[in-house]
Design a protein around this nucleic acid. Structure first.
Length: 445
RNA sequence: CGGAGUAUAGCUCAGCCUGGUAGAGCGCUACUUUCGGGAAGUAGAGGCCGCGUGUUCGAAUCACGCUACUCCGACCA
C-alpha cells in the first residue's frame, strides 16, 4: 500500500480523552476513532490489525476442531425469556423494539441462540461432540466504558460453545479450548496466563480467565514464576489424542495463578516466596464449563446410545478480539510508539523513501515495493514528500516490525537500511539481500 | 449508578472572573529556502464558541435547563 493513497490520520499530540498507553497509541496511530462512549470506528490501519488477529483466532479454533458459523447481533427477547435470563441480565443488555413493537436486544452473548440452533440440528449421540463458534460484535451497555477498545460497549468477541453427551466429554472439550487459547495468544506474541476463575453455581475447576500481564491491567494477579518461565511459544498438541490435551492442560494449571477474585493467601503461601509474582493483568479470554445451565431450560437434548434423551453438557469460550488489540499494544510498545508482534502487524514492512522525487531513489524504492509485494510481503510504502525525521517518527509510531529505508546516501554505495522495530537492530545491505531477508522473515505469518 | 469535571478550528488549548462581534501552537493549502530522526519564512483556508431558554442595547463570557463526553469509585470479554 502506498501511503499517499491510504488513509492514515496520525496525531502528533495525545488526544485528551486517552488515559492509557494503548488507547493513546491507537488514536495517534490512526487505528480507531471514537463514535460515542465505548463505541469506535476502526480506521483502515486498525481494521487490518483487527483482521490479522481475527484470522489467527479462526485458525486456532478450527485447528482445535471448532466449527465456524455466524449468528446475528440482534436477537429476539423471547429466547432469553425461555432461558430465564431476560430479566436477570439487567441494564447491561441493550433492549430495543422493532416497528411491530416486538422486543429485541443487541446480543451481549449467544448461549441461548446457539443452544436453540443445536437443539434443532443435533438429534443423536452420533452427532456429538460438537463445538461451534463465531466472531461477532457484541454490545454490553457498561456503566462506565473506558480505556478505548479495552473496555468498550461494542466489542468484537469470539465465542465458542461446546456440546457433549457426558461431563467427561465436556471436560475434554474444555481442555481443547484451553490449549487452543494458549496457542492463539502465543502466536500473537503474548503470554496470556490462564488463571483459575469463579465457576459460579456449577463448581469444579473448569473455568479459567486468560490474562496478559501489563501495568495498566484492571485485575490484580498472583502467579508462580515457574508458570511464567514455561515455553509458551512452542506448545505442541495432538487434538485427536485426549492424553496429549490433558497433559498440556495439567502442566499449565498446576502452578498457582489467580486473580484477586479467587486469590487465596493460604494456598498462595505454599508457593515459595522467591517465586511469587504479583502484577496487574488484562483479561483477554474466559472459558467456562457450565453443564446443563442452558440446555436444561431450553430443552436441548440428544438421544443417547440407549435410546433415552440426554440433556447436553455445555461449555462456552470467549476471546475479546477487539480488546486483544489494546492488550497487544499494552504489552508491546515503547516511548516512540507501537511495536507490533509479527503475526498481528497490519503490514510487515514500512518502506521509507527518504527522497521522494529523486529519480534514482524513487526507482529503487519502487522496485523494492513491487518485488516485495509480488513475493507476498505486506508493505506500507511511505512515498510521501516528507522529511526524514517526520517519516521515521511516523513509522516508529505505527510500529511495523521492519523498516526498509532507501535514500540517496546509501544508494550511492548500493545499500539500503533494514531496521527491526522491536530492538532497533539495523543493517546495511543490498536491495536484493533485503528482499530475500524480508521474504524469509515473513514467510508463514 | 454515586461523586467530580469538561464542552471554543482537524488536534492540544487560551479567552469567560470584569459582557462589546474569535485567538495561539501543531496540523492543512500555496510558494521559497532547507532536506538521513518531527526545519524556517511568507501568504492562505478553516469556527451555529455543545444545544435551548432567559437577562441585556449587546452573550463564547452572566443565569437556568438539557445533552454529550471524561475522570474517581462500585461492576464487566
Amino acid at each position: 500500500m502506498r501511503l499517499t493513497r491510504y488513509v492514515l490520520p496520525l496525531l502528533k499530540e495525545t488526544p485528551a480523552e486517552a488515559q492509557i498507553v494503548s488507547h493513546r497509541l491507537m488514536l495517534r496511530a490512526g487505528m480507531i476513532r471514537q463514535s460515542s462512549a465505548g463505541i469506535y470506528s476502526w480506521l483502515p490501519f486498525g481494521y487490518r490489525a483487527l483482521q490479522k488477529v481475527e484470522r489467527i483466532v479462526h485458525e486456532e479454533q478450527q485447528r482445535a476442531g471448532a466449527i465456524p458459523l455466524l449468528m446475528p447481533t440482534i436477537q429476539p427477547a423471547e429466547i432469553w425469556r425461555e432461558s430465564g435470563r431476560y430479566d436477570a441480565y439487567g441494564p447491561e443488555m441493550l433492549r430495543i423494539k422493532d416497528r411491530h413493537e416486538r422486543e429485541m436486544l443487541y446480543g451481549p452473548t449467544n448461549e441461548e441462540m446457539i443452544t436453540l440452533l443445536v437443539r434443532d440440528a443435533v438429534k443423536s449421540w452420533r452427532d456429538l461432540p460438537r463445538n461451534l463458534y463465531h466472531i461477532q460484535w457484541k454490545f454490553r451497555d457498561e456503566t462506565r466504558p473506558r480505556f478505548g477498545v479495552m473496555r468498550g460497549r461494542e466489542f468484537l468477541m469470539k465465542d465458542a460453545y461446546s456440546f457433549d453427551l457426558t461431563a467427561e466429554g465436556a471436560r475434554l472439550s474444555y481442555q481443547k479450548m484451553f490449549v487452543s487459547y494458549l496457542k492463539t495468544f502465543a502466536r500473537l506474541g503474548l503470554t496470556a496466563v490462564p488463571m483459575k476463575a469463579d465457576t459460579g453455581p456449577i463448581g469444579g475447576d473448569l473455568s479459567h480467565e486468560f490474562l496478559i500481564l501489563a501495568e495498566t491491567g484492571e485485575s490484580q494477579v498472583f502467579v508462580d514464576s515457574q508458570l511464567l518461565a514455561k515455553d509458551w511459544s512452542s506448545v505442541e498438541v495432538d487434538y485427536e489424542d485426549p492424553a496429549s490435551v490433558e497433559a498440556i492442560f495439567e502442566s499449565f494449571t498446576s502452578a498457582y495463578a489467580r486473580t484477586d477474585e479467587t486469590h487465596d493467601p493460604a494456598i498462595w503461601a505454599e508457593t515459595p516466596a522467591g517465586r511469587q509474582v504479583s502484577a496487574r493483568g488484562v483479561e483477554v479470554g474466559h472459558i467456562f464449563y457450565f453443564g446443563t445451565k442452558y440446555s436444561e431450560p431450553l430443552k436441548a437434548t440428544a438421544i443417547g446410545p440407549d435410546g433415552q434423551p440426554v440433556t447436553l453438557e455445555m461449555g462456552s469460550y470467549g476471546v475479546g478480539v477487539s480488546r486483544l488489540l489494546g492488550a497487544i499494544i499494552e504489552a508491546s510498545h515503547d516511548e516512540n510508539g507501537i511495536i507490533w508482534p509479527e503475526a498481528a502487524a497490519p503490514f510487515h514492512v514500512a518502506l521509507v523513501n527518504l527522497k521522494q522525487g529523486d529519480a534514482a531513489v524513487d526507482a529503487a524504492a519502487g522496485k523494492l515495493y513491487a518485488e516485495l509485494t509480488a513475493a507476498g510481503v505486506e508493505v506500507l510504502y511511505d512515498d510521501r514528500d516528507e522529511r526524514a525525521g517526520g517519516k521515521f517518527a511516523a513509522m516508529d509510531l505505527i510500529g511495523l516490525p521492519w523498516r526498509l529505508t532507501v535514500g540517496p546516501r546509501g544508494l550511492a554505495s548500493g545499500q539500503v537500511e533494514l531496521r527491526r522495530r522491536k530492538d532497533g537492530a539495523t543493517e546495511e545491505l543490498t536491495p536484493e539481500a533485503a528482499v530475500a531477508k524480508l521474504v524469509a522473515a515473513t514467510r508463514g505469518l
